[in-house]
């Protein structure tokens, strides 16, 4: 938090907001944590307290922070939701930008799909609990294992090929020792 980009044209209060949201997403801060008071943060960042106050007020209106009288400012339960809302807005405006510049929608979608596929394959290597929100997707797509031709369900442990992103049953993968897709190097 202790860094503000003075060269940037982004308003300082927006920078504070972005930093706080980032810290919640990255887990540096957690719901219920106390954030520095206005004087503390102003002093730390060498910023006018009015700017910090403006940022905090905005975050409070959004429902990211709540103020407990005489105790301090805390990250609210609804904070994650406000981040999602903020991201939604940013994505929308980014898409608007793409459209106004004549960037074809299909390419936007294909980029999104590719990012998404990469995201899933990366997440699969993480411990199971962090993939929770993504496992639903695997089921809804009715993924079939290319080796045994049976459905890969949510509870099955699976391995995803690094090259073609195809899911396999973990046992099947171990059995053949490679990706079952013809021509794939994985």
């Amino acid at each position: 938090m202790n860094y503000i980009d003075r060269e940037s044209n982004e308003a300082f209060d927006d920078q504070i907001k972005t930093r706080l949201r980032e810290q919640l997403t990255r887990g540096v801060l957690q719901v219920g944590d106390r954030v520095p008071s206005v004087p503390q943060l102003a002093e730390e960042l060498v910023l006018n307290p009015k700017i910090v106050l403006k940022a905090y007020k905005c975050l409070m209106e959004e429902g990211f922070l709540y103020y407990s009288r005489g105790v301090g400012l805390f990250i609210a339960d609804t904070a994650k939701k406000t981040i999602e809302k903020d991201l939604e807005q940013k994505l929308t405006s980014l898409f608007e930008l793409c459209r106004s510049n004549g960037f074809p929608t299909e390419r936007v979608l294909s980029i999104l799909e590719r990012c998404f596929a990469n995201g899933i394959s990366q997440l699969q290597r993480l411990p199971a609990e962090s993939t929770g929100s993504f496992s639903v997707l695997a089921v809804s797509k009715q993924v079939l294992c290319p080796f045994c031709r049976e459905r890969i369900t949510n509870s099955d442990s699976q391995t995803i090929c690094r090259f073609c992103n195809t899911s396999h049953h973990e046992d099947c993968w171990v059995e053949i020792g490679r990706c079952a897709i013809f021509g794939c190097e994985g």
Binding site: F12, V46, N48, P49
Partner: peptide, 24 residues
């Protein structure tokens, strides 16, 4: 900055390195 937070302080400041005061 600590002074600024304590009360409604009015400040007139001159500095040749204005960029260090930009946030204030």
């Amino acid at each position: 900055v600590g002074e600024l937070t304590h009360q409604d302080m009015t400040v007139v400041v001159a500095n040749h390195h204005m960029e260090e005061l930009i946030g204030i």
